[in-house]
Structures are given as structure tokens and as C-alpha cells.
Amino acid sequence: MSRAGSTDLAVELREVSAGYFVAEGLKALRRKYVEVLRGVSLRVDGGERVAVIGESGSGKTTLLKVVLGLLQPMRGDVVVLGHRIYDIPERERWKVTRRIGYVPQDPFRALNPRLKVADIITEPLSRLHLPEDEKEERVRAAVKMVQLHESVLNHYPSRLSGGMMQRVLIARAVVHEPELLLLDEPTSALDVSTQAQVINLLNGIQERLKCAMVTVTHDLAVAQYLADRAVILYKGVVVEEGPLDEIVRNPKSEHARVLVASYTLGVSNPPIPASFV
């Protein structure tokens, strides 16, 4: 199913500040507000591939929650797929979020061990009122797109390896042909060889669906394969943004410079394998 040229805005955050209330003192009589994101602005157009790069504590998880409609920011505007998502009452937000494909970080926590893979992947289609056979078709197509064999549909998550679980999650995220794909550390839990497979897979999918793809990661090297533009988060603030290649070549902010340097492992040049050149 084609989508008319997605030049619409997928996500826009304008000067968003968000945080959490933390219970303080005995019996949580008082609650302190801890700000995690400060004045963050982000814009993702339809069909764009953007990376949000941040390490632990940078606020990237909070950013995801804000985009998913799970955490109302204290300040700022949030527009997701054309809707001001926080103007919609919580119970109705699914009408927007169901157009998003979200792949969470930990596959062990994202798959219901009591459901078969087929049911897991079919779930996002439940509100679409499609005839049974069309649902089945889509599920099978999704499984093929993630390069898994159909037989996996009958298994329970316990039978799957880490890489397979990740693919099932991706299949679930794309079965309803989302306009926006949100990936939370899609390769962090994977082995190097599986990581490469998943990276190639994700790019293939994004090309086919022509959806906007936002990858949240701490790994700059992986990000360069999954995004054209990047936003670097540090302690809740955007310290740099722009085309990823630019940032890598010429980092402007202090943090970005340190980050880029640590990937080339600084000091002595590591021997570069012959096949690289």
C-alpha cells in the first residue's frame, strides 16, 4: 500500500521541558519535580531518518515517552502525526499512537510469554476491523519482511533467540504500516553479527514503508547507518544537531567532540582491517 509522498510532519517538539515527580521524605508527603528534558526542540519530517543520540541520563527515554503520549511536558508543544497529542484525553490517544510503530529496548520485556508469536504480531491490527484472512496476510508479510520463517508464528517467545525476538518486535511494529517508526536502542542487546543484520533489515523496511524513522541510541557508529540527521542530547539539553556526517566530521560542541573522539578510540590508530579501505 503506497502512501502519498510523505512530506508531512511526523514529529515536532518545540521547547519541550519534561520531568518526573519523585516522592520525597517519609510517606511521600512531598513530591519533588525532577526536570529531565529542558527546552528540547526536535523536528522530524515524513520519511526522514533521524537519530537521537544520548547516553544514560541524557533524557532520551523521557523524550520517547513524550513522543508516545505517555508523559505530558511541563512546557512546550508536542505535535505527533499532525495532532497536538496532549490536547487529546489519555483514553483517546491510541487513535494517534496506533499509527506509530514502537520497538522497545528489551525484547524480554516486550513479548508476552503467554502469547504465540502470531498473536503478538496481529495485535496492532485489532482495531482496524479487517477481515481475518487479510490480517493473516499482513502478518505473514510482516514476518517475511523481517526475514523470519513462517513457522515462527506458532512458537512462544521462550523458543526464540535474542535476534529472533528483536525481529518479532520489529514485525509487530510494522504490520500496520505505521507512518512513524520509533526505535529504542534497537541493537544494543544484540551480538555484532545480529546487529548488522538488524541494521540492514531496518533500512530495508524504512525504504519500503517510506515512514519517518527515529532511532534512539547511544551508539554513534550504529546511528550513522540508521539516520541521516542527528540530535545529540546531553543532560536533557540538545547540544548539537544536524546531518550526521557533518557532526562526525566536524563536531562543534564539546560533548559531541568527546563523543566522536571516543569512537575512534583516540590515541594510537587501531589497525584498520584491509577490507575497510
Binding site: D191, T194, V248
Partner: peptide, 24 residues
Amino acid sequence: TSMLIESVPVLGIKRPLKTYAGEP
């Protein structure tokens, strides 16, 4: 070993990631 080396993403060098199917 070749596979390990060829599938590692390296910052600054954007060559296609080759990989062999399957998992360890």
C-alpha cells in the same frame, strides 16, 4: 573473524555492513 570485522559499524567509515545469516 572476517565476518566479525566486516559487520562492525565503524564511525566515519560508511561501508555497507556485510553479514552472514544465522546467529551464534
